[in-house]
Amino acid sequence: MIERDEVLHVARLARLALGEDELEPMARELSAVLDHVAKIGELDLENVPPTSHVVDMTGALRADEPTPSLPREVVLSQAPVASDEGFLVPSPQA
């Protein structure tokens, strides 16, 4: 069973605020899913290589030719808060 403190620790790693009312259900649901997936612990997987990707390809590099980027004003137009020059965010240490 995942404990409340562990939920808070993982949530902080994930940069996710959780309300007081979300902690207990999250602990319960994560525990249920983790108990289920723990069954793969029973398999003998010694010397089995991991698969991170099914497409076995290397060196999928494009030609190194400069192409135009999106215009700055187009990109900044999507930001919740922007200046003429970039994204505006609050100070890390207000």
């Binding site: 902080r12 994930a14 940069r15 996710l16 605020a17 990109v75 999507q78 930001a79 919740p80 808060v81 994204f87 965010v89 609050p90 100070s91 890390p92 240490q93 207000a94």
Partner: peptide
């Protein structure tokens, strides 16, 4: 930061990340 929703009145950067999400 770059698109979509941002939580209102964040008191610092971490607070903005966490409450936006």
């Amino acid at each position: 930061v770059r698109y979509g929703l941002r939580a209102s009145d964040p008191h610092d950067l971490l607070d903005m990340y966490m409450r936006t999400r």
